[in-house]
Structures are given as C-alpha cells and as structure tokens.
C-alpha cells in the first residue's frame, strides 16, 4: 500500500482563537487525488494555508512524511501577485524553477527547455515576452499552472483553481491535474463544482469546520452528508466557551 504523505492529527486551525478547522483527523496517501469540499466558511482554504505553514495550528499538528514544507507547490485562491509589476510571462513562470536555481544559479539549457515546455503545455507559447499585466484572467491562471508545473512538486495544493475561468481553460487545466495524478504526484484541490469532483476526483474530504465525511467520492457526496454540511453556521460565536475536547 502507498504510504501517507500528509496527515492531519487532531488539527485545529483558526483565527483569533475561533476554530475554522476543528479537531480534524485525516491522512492523505502519496499519489492520492483529493478534493476538499464544503460550504463557504467551512475551513477549506484555512486547511491549505495551515499545510503550507502560513498559519500556525491552534491545536494538533500537520505531519509531512518524506517532504519539507518548501517542497509543496501551492496555488492560493487570491495570490498576492502585483499585476502591474513590470515582468514578463517567461520570468514569472521561470520562478517555478526556484528549487533548482535558488538565488544565483543560471537556468541553463535544461531550464530554458523546461520553461518552454511548461508554457507549451498550458497553451501559452508565444506569450514569453508579454508583460503579465496584459494577460486575461484565464491566461494568468494558465501561467500560474505553468509555474506549478516547473516546481516539480510531489504534493500540490490548489485552492479553487477553476473559479471564473472559461470551460476550455478548465478542460486543459483538468488535463494537467490528471497528468500529475498519473505521475503519482499527490494533488489536493479545494473545489465547489460537485460534478467536477464526481468525475475527476476519486477521493473527497467533506469539511464544515469539522470533518463531515471523507473517503471515496461517491460515498462522501451523499445527500445526507451534503445536507449536514450545509447546516454549518458561518458566524463565529463570540460568547463561545473554551473547547474542552
């Protein structure tokens, strides 16, 4: 059997002592393709932020096996990218090679080839010299996927990668996710479109602050489970007592 690459152990993540993810226990196998599903405010993005270490757990822990936090490729929902920054598509995508080039090394012939390949894979050949400020939303998302591709990571976290993107782009990017899965990489994606989850993702974690269900997608996305998830109250209870669990 495959070994576990990412494990949440009694994990509580949150803001201002209020939990957004509450006592989560879940293990993700190396090579798994997992969708994280749940209503708004269910703690999906928070879970990914905690995994890449930009949020410190309020309790429990996140165990990575065989990789470091810096080996994770992460596509945030709202990136901090400055769209007006004077930089070309090529230079932006090339940042994905950081693990190889670090601060000083040249890209080398191999690097240039890989960058070209990545741009080709996402359908952005010919865009190399374009300033990123001139890209459309979908083209920008393609460029970000090219950068993820170059990161060559064993664990890839995607936070709502298909939001506000046309169907052709979604189809291409889903193809990329399938390719990562075939290459035995672990992909964890936060998604809202349940049809997409049913067709593309064998495994699902249904979250509503607490874990509602997890496992094979068709079992997890049952009407009863979804109904239970929907009943989550989004607002924090200001008068909540300290959790004793």
């Amino acid at each position: 059997m495959d070994s576990t690459i990412l494990q949440f152990v009694n994990l509580t993540l949150g803001y201002d002592r209020h939990p957004a993810v509450h006592h989560l226990d879940y293990a993700i196998r190396a090579g798994a393709l997992v969708a994280v599903v749940g209503p708004n405010g269910a703690g999906k993005s928070t879970l990914l932020k905690g995994t890449v270490g930009s949020l410190t757990p309020l309790g429990g822990e996140i165990r990575l096996t065989g990789i470091e936090v810096s080996d994770i490729a992460y596509l945030p929902q709202q990136s901090e990218i400055d769209q007006g920054f004077p930089i070309s598509v090529f230079d932006m995508v090339a940042m994905g090679l950081w693990r190889k080039t670090r601060a000083f090394r040249r890209f080398g012939r191999e690097g240039y080839r890989k960058i070209g390949e990545a741009l080709d894979t996402v359908g952005l050949s010919g865009f190399e010299k374009r300033p990123i400020g001139t890209l459309s939303g979908g083209q920008m998302q393609r460029a970000l996927f090219a950068r993820l591709l170059l990161q060559d990571a064993r664990l890839i976290l995607l936070d709502e990668p298909f939001t506000s993107i046309d169907s052709a782009t979604v189809r291409d990017l889903k193809g990329l996710i399938r390719r990562w899965h075939e290459e035995r990489r672990t992909v964890v994606a936060v998604l809202h479109d349940l049809d997409q989850v049913r067709t593309e993702f064998p495994e699902t974690l249904l979250l509503a602050r607490e874990q509602i269900a997890a496992g094979p997608t068709e079992h997890v996305l049952s009407p009863a489970n979804l109904d239970q998830a929907r009943r989550l109250t989004e607002a924090f209870d200001e008068g909540a007592a300290v959790c004793e669990r």
Binding site: S70, I72, A73, D82, T101
Partner: peptide, 23 residues
C-alpha cells in the same frame, strides 16, 4: 546583486517566495 532574484520575487509575488523559500 546578491539579493536581486529574491527581491524581485518579494516585490512581485511575496506569497510565492514565502512558499518556496525562507529568504
């Protein structure tokens, strides 16, 4: 010259730099 690459990344996409490096 020493911090050029991380500095450009820090200006352009600080979130990405933090995710791949502690620089």
């Amino acid at each position: 010259a020493f911090i050029y690459r991380p500095l450009v990344m820090e200006c352009f996409d600080p979130g990405f730099l933090r995710s791949v490096s502690s620089l």
